[in-house]
Amino acid sequence: MEKILQDFQDGLIAALPRLRRFAYALTGSMADADDLTQATVERALLKRSMLREGSNPDGWLFKICRNIWIDEIRRKTARREVAETSEKDEPMVDGNKVMEDRLEVARIEEVLKSMPDDQRAVIFLVAAEGYTYREAAEIMGCPTGTIMSKLARARGRITDILLSKEAKS
């Protein structure tokens, strides 16, 4: 029993970086992402008998994470946004650091932040983590067609930024 709990905790520790990134993709805010990750881990510990053997623990955690985000936190976003402005003062990204393709992270971050939560989560799942449309649909609780269109919209918006930047330089 104790061994099972330990194994489960080890699994959670291994999945934590991906869970945090997903939470960040979903919330668009690092502060919210950490709160959400914590809530997800608490819930996962409580509901761990629900995780079936052989199933993908990441997908299971992402689903829990998304459910909590929908239920608990989105209502508070308005309040959080006020606090968020102070976070901007912290140097989250080194101003001089430029990505390989010479585009600033901050600019992409900005366009990502302006997207609906689900668009960000979908581009994270498919483009950054390599989930199939079907797997992403399962996690997001929507049809694959919706994944397809959300992904295209998210990619399209970043692509617009990339192309406009190129046109300027």
């Binding site: 960040y24 950490d34 990750t37 393709d101 585009l103 992409i108 483009a127 950054a128 998210a154």
Partner: peptide, 26 residues
């Protein structure tokens, strides 16, 4: 490139220390 750019942005949270409460939890 957009895919890579998005992945880079989401990875930025890796640089932020894991909050103590969360560390304690695990």
């Amino acid at each position: 490139v957009a895919d890579k750019a998005a992945a880079t942005v989401f990875g930025e949270i890796d640089k932020r220390p894991v909050p103590e409460a969360l560390r304690n939890l695990l």
